[in-house]
Design a protein around this nucleic acid. Structure first.
Lengths: 342, 342
DNA sequence: TCAAAAATTCAAAGCGCTTTGGATTTCCTT
DNA sequence: AAGGAAATCCAAAGCGCTTTGAATTTTTGA
């Protein structure tokens, strides 16, 4: 069943049927209803290839996967992709997934856009002064950044969470509980979100005239292993921290183990707050001691980004160009008053 | 630059140029060379949408992502996808990534095929008697299975590794080293590869009249955490195993930690072999004690599957319908003679 | 009531590629 | 040298949709 057959069936021209389906105003309401009914009955689905050819739109979104050591197998990536896919499938949008070496990202993006196979690009894993942004702004292809760069103006479309705010709030909760010795188990130091989270913690401490000690911060891939090692190192310090923040529940997993192993009690000897991307496989409430978290769903972000990207391509609706989501601070049992000084 | 312009430039018809580019025989070798040279010079790239419309092929591959708890964030997924993408991008193929609840996979696959948006489907996470296979065979859309089901005939296109053989070989190495008490830290029990790996170990033991004790096998998501807990449990047994097999280096990570924590020496007190998917972020040779592994690159599998899928769609070349890759057994320091009985 | 404006609808021209069915040339045989 | 086969190349017809420019019908205003 194609447009021609459908229009013959209805005794209308292809033009009218096409317009009825695509929401153009110059078509009688009654006629439109007839068309929609016929579509439902016949199960007509427009041929995407023909639409793409006629409109010049590719109907797909490009994403460049950084394929370096320690990045490509990011646990968080699958979850985000699930969100993206969820929304994209609803609009029959495709993906072009282009693996690339991280040093080559700019060129890969450029090539992908030039290929004409995508009509929007998705960017993530932002770094400081990320060169991809200037490059994309020089092209006319729409794009959205997940996260934000640092050190360049925020005048591009992005969706980010308020990392600074989230970690400020978390650290603030802990200072209010009397904690003074802090540690942060963070993501890679070249990624912008890590920088912001660190800044959030530092700010909360600065309000009390404190600062984050250099040996109480670690930066690395967000793996369980990293969490474990980092926590072990902290516990070996002269005056170990009593308040620890983790950039991911994956990191927290390792940290918790190290704490238990040291015979300390979470929420009493040590308070812990982790950032929760809402990975279904790792729920903070299922930890032995339920974790206090700053929460923001990665999957929801994926959906929203797909939605905005698609809206922009189809010029359906005007969604905000920049969004900064606040993370929820969820207090559970892993945070408690600072232990008395010995 | 489009076909028309290119052909005018060359003083040829569109037909001839098209044929020259698509490798048809009825074109003079010299003419073809002229065309190819012109393409290089002008940078002409055929419009994919037009090709798709003309040929009726969608130019994309569908993949249904299981989106259940503990599956979608599979660390191994990203790595596999990198392989797929790598090959697909070379042929301008797209992906349609369709998230789905696992109980709904069959219907989702069917819908995806019916949408006409994909001309091949990729299936993975095979279970016993997986219903998707019969369903796909009833349709005419090409598909490839990564892995194999169990309990139904192997008469569909697949790429699998010889899981039984790999784990048989691994276990055999250990029995030859004198080990008699075995344990297996495995993937989820409903997945076919887990079943096969267990079978491989059981077979090697059976040759010596031994069997795998029920309390020496665990099945769960392949996370560090699982590896750690499982190993801890084994070590608490009356007569702990001296030989342990892990279905993933991710599991081994946790297992190693548990062993170290118990003060035991890997390769002396306990021998360990893990299956290595060649995740760049987790190299077995970088473990404190380098790990003996059964190795098979997940990324290579992704590339190969994309290659076969695309070849089948374009009918380029005839690649084998069924491939069973042997895993390499790489002996490193984590395996040694069984310790003397006390 | 009639011309002008607004609301609907339509025919036809692409979008850029593949492919069918013929032309036209060139190459062999005999 | 002539007839037929083989080798090349071409014009034109789609593929199924969108969109332009115009035609037709309905409303509106004076």
């Amino acid at each position: 069943m194609n447009l021609k057959q459908l229009s013959q069936l209805l005794g209308l021209s292809q033009t009218t049927v096409s317009r009825a389906l695509n929401g153009y105003p110059e078509v009688n309401a009654e006629t439109r209803q007839r068309v929609l009914d016929a579509v439902r009955e016949t199960g007509y689905r427009p041929n995407r290839a023909a639409q793409r050819l006629a409109t010049g739109r590719a109907g797909s979104i490009g994403l460049v996967m950084p394929t370096a050591d320690g990045i490509e197998s990011d646990v968080h990536f699958g979850e985000f992709l699930a969100g993206l896919g969820d929304e994209a499938v609803r609009h029959d949008f495709h993906f072009v997934i282009n693996p690339s070496h991280p040093e080559d990202e700019v060129a890969t993006c450029r090539r992908l856009v030039a290929s004409g196979n995508v009509d929007a690009l998705f960017l993530a894993y932002m770094r400081e002064k990320d060169p991809r942004i200037a490059m994309m702004k020089s092209l006319k292809t729409p794009f959205i950044v997940h996260g934000r760069s640092i050190g360049i103006p925020d005048d591009y479309p992005y969706l980010d969470i308020d990392n600074t705010g989230a970690f400020y709030d978390a650290a603030r909760l802990l200072t209010q509980l009397g904690h003074r010795r802090f540690a942060l188990i963070n993501g890679p130091d070249y990624l912008a979100f890590s920088v912001r989270r660190r800044k959030g913690v530092a700010r909360a401490l600065a309000e009390l005239g404190l600062s984050l000690r250099e040996d109480c911060v670690t930066h690395a891939q967000m793996t369980d292993e990293h969490g474990f090692r980092a926590m072990q190192a902290f516990l070996r310090l002269e005056a170990p921290p009593t308040a620890v923040l983790c950039s991911s529940t994956v990191l927290a997993l390792g940290a918790v183990r190290a704490i238990n192993q040291a015979g300390l009690k979470i929420g009493a000897d040590i308070s812990l707050i982790a950032h929760d991307d809402v990975l279904p496989m790792l729920k903070p409430e299922n930890f032995m001691v339920p974790l206090t978290t700053t929460r923001s769903s990665l999957r929801a972000a994926g959906q929203r980004i797909a939605r905005r990207l698609i809206a922009q391509i189809l010029q359906l609706e005007t969604l905000p160009q920049q969004e900064l989501w606040k993370a929820d601070l969820i207090v559970r049992a892993s945070t408690g008053p600072a232990p008395p000084e010995k």
